[in-house]
Design a protein around this nucleic acid. Structure first.
Length: 426
RNA sequence: GGAGAGGUAGCGAAGUUGGCCGUAACGCGCUCGACUCGAAAUCGAGUUAUCGGUUAGUCCCGGUACGUGGGUUCGAAUCCCACCCUCUCCGCCA
């Protein structure tokens, strides 16, 4: 949610910033609603003030056993007025809220202006794509060939975009989860959380997934439960409604969870392989930080994700999402893209975003400054560190050998009981 | 699922025959000050959030908030209804 004061006093800035995102917003609508809302508040509060005063007078008379019938009679019209004004206010407030919840975050000034993913500048690159003396296969071919990925049975059990892991693949999934969590908790200073995988509407609204993106989510029939599309949702809103001590900042949480996404609107995209599933495991990083530090924290967190790719010896590049390609809640986003030899291109493997105070306002995440004083909204960041399925795909494609076996990077050997090469029989 | 108890400031807790009871008794914690060489102890003072008006900002004025949402009433922490959550016991269960 945007700061309502910015909308009031600098609507033009909002309009321009959102235009860069490719999202048009009619700030005049807001101005009109806001004005109406404030007038209704002022009017109804005036009547409430009167009611309070008269009620106090009634109480005083009753204590003296005096008659108060005239006052009570007078209150009938005051109460009718309050009822009417508040009914109107509720309606207007509802409109304002709905409007505010649909407005995306403003891009930070350092974000390049652009239209879509073709305008995302590359800012860093690491590792060299491996050179093969044969035509590299795609990961699903390797995975199926080695008996680890069973897309057919996944589809039988649940449908398309589901997969079943077997033997070394299931083991590798678990190894990656442990590896990621170990690095984050031991070296990067994150606290591991195991959150609920179902959350309510309020929680989903806090991160910005609702109300606008309901169609991207799975929900439970007859319950106010939604399946999380990422651990970002519960991790970011853990402290919703609370006022933290500044000394608690920065908070750094990591969690591995299944993630559930409807992938509505991506029919025909990445229909094969592990890239786009309805269910996938991801290790997520979330940071709740002092507003003055959030952009430094973004660099830090991006480094944490990069660290994992380096240790896995996976070639990758880093891009900044341009204004037109950013997510709803983000004010700045880096995407890490891993090299997939089978697909002969870089594919997104981590998205690290600074959401500024956008989610903090929605979820009411605040801290009290160390010197005392008014609570302030903190800033929230989230980043994948890393999605397990896509990492597994990258490992298969980058480590493949001519006979279809796959070399594992050294970092994973201890997590695989010393196994260094994936073969059909492991 | 059944029975009972409860939800009030950072924590504990008082307030239920409706009316100076909401900055909210009392205690703890925290902050500042006094005392002290320093500390403890003691004493004193301070310590909710939010919205609207006003403001450069503070102050100030007013509204709201006693789990949530409704209702009754001139007036609700207090009475009524629904729901949520926590605890205890019973049942069931990985």
């Amino acid at each position: 949610m945007l700061d309502i004061k910015i909308l009031r006093h600098d609507a033009e800035r909002v309009r321009k910033a959102l235009e860069a995102r490719g999202s048009r917003v009619d700030t005049a609508v807001f101005a009109r609603l806001d004005e109406k809302r404030r007038a209704l508040i002022a009017a109804s509060e005036e009547l409430r003030r009167e009611r309070n005063a008269v009620s106090a007078e009634v109480a005083a008379r009753k204590r003296r056993s005096d008659d108060a019938a005239d006052l009570i009679e007078r209150m009938a019209s005051v109460n009718a007025g309050i009822r009417e004004l508040e009914r109107d206010l509720d309606a207007v407030q509802g409109e304002v809220d709905a409007w505010m919840l649909e407005i995306p975050n403003l891009p930070h000034e350092s974000v390049p202006v652009g239209k879509d993913e073709n305008d995302n500048p590359e800012v860093a690159r690491n590792g060299k794509p491996p050179v093969f003396t044969f035509t590299p296969k795609e990961h699903w071919e390797l995975g199926e060939g080695l008996g680890g990925l069973d897309f057919q049975r996944g589809a039988k059990l649940a449908g398309s975009r589901f997969v079943l892991y077997r033997a070394w693949a299931a083991r590798l999934e678990r190894a990656l989860v442990n590896f990621f969590l170990d690095v984050h908790t031991r070296e990067h200073g994150y606290t591991e959380i195991l959150p609920p995988l179902l959350v309510n509407s309020k929680t989903m609204t806090g991160t910005g997934n609702l109300p606008k993106f309901a169609e991207d989510l799975f929900r439970i029939t007859d319950w106010d439960y939604w399946l999380i599309p990422t651990a970002e949702v519960p991790l970011t809103t853990m402290y919703a409604g609370e006022i933290l001590d500044e000394t608690m900042l920065p908070l750094a949480f990591t969690a591995q969870t299944p993630c559930f996404r409807s992938e509505a609107g991506s029919h025909g995209k990445d229909t094969r392989g592990l890239i786009r599933m309805h269910q996938f495991t991801k290790v997520e990083m979330v940071r709740c930080v002092h507003p003055d530090r959030s952009f430094e924290e973004l660099e830090l967190m991006r480094g944490h994700a990069e660290d994992l790719l380096r240790r896995l010896e996976l070639p990758y590049r880093v891009i900044v999402l341009c204004t037109g390609d950013m997510g709803f809640a983000a004010t700045k986003t880096y995407d890490l893209e891993v090299w997939l030899p089978g697909q002969n291109c870089y594919r997104e493997i981590s998205s690290c975003s600074n959401c500024g105070d956008f989610q903090a306002r929605r979820a009411d995440l605040r801290f009290r400054p160390a010197g005392g004083g008014k609570p302030e909204y903190l800033h929230t960041l989230n980043g994948s560190g890393l999605p397990v399925g896509r990492t597994l795909a990258a490992l298969l494609e980058n480590g493949q050998q001519e006979d279809g076996s796959v070399r594992l990077p050294e970092a994973l050997h201890p997590y695989m009981d010393g196994l260094t090469v994936l073969r059909r029989d492991v």
